[in-house]
């Protein structure tokens, strides 16, 4: 059987339990924020790659990054591009094809243009491009920007 309670008692209970839940709820929210690990903005650092004329135009230079991955630095005239050599499809290593002016993944025939954008094969279907890195030129030297570990 459902017990009937007066409106006064109902409002009294509502304000009391509501107030308690609101105040301790705020505390719980603070606790959640306290326990939530902070997402820190990653700091970038420059690493020296090579002298500007150290890479021939139309060719790539393989550069090992501090996190163990590799980047391919491509020079086309005065333009330098840095791309990861890991295929975003299943992790095989891509190669630069000078004749086709593209990057090719031999595992599933994935193709990427000179900016790393997927143009054919499974990476294009999945819209997965090669990861790009920022390059900086200081004087006659080329630097790559990577996230601090």
């Amino acid at each position: 059987m459902t017990k009937k309670i007066s409106r006064r008692k109902f409002l009294l209970n509502l304000s009391m339990w509501g107030g308690l839940m609101a105040s301790y709820g705020t505390g719980a929210l603070y606790v959640f924020r306290y326990l939530l690990p902070e997402k820190k903005a990653k700091q970038l650092r420059k690493i020296y790659v090579a002298p500007l004329n150290g890479i021939e135009s139309g060719k790539t230079l393989k550069f090992r990054l501090p996190d163990g991955n590799e980047a391919l630095i491509l020079r086309l005239g005065d333009k330098y591009t840095a791309l990861s050599n890991t295929c975003p499809h299943l992790g095989c290593k891509v190669k630069w094809r000078k004749q086709e002016s593209d990057f090719f993944c031999p595992c599933h025939n994935g193709e990427f243009n000179k900016e790393g954008v997927a143009t054919a094969g499974p990476p294009a279907t999945e819209h997965k491009d090669l990861k790009t890195y920022q390059l900086k030129t200081i004087g006659e030297s080329l630097f790559i920007e990577v996230e601090e570990a």
């Binding site: 603070y30 606790v31 924020r33 306290y34 939530l36 902070e38």
Partner: peptide, 9 residues
């Protein structure tokens, strides 16, 4: 000084 609400707790 760094953890959110750490000073409060």
């Amino acid at each position: 000084e760094e953890v959110p609400f750490g000073w409060w707790l």
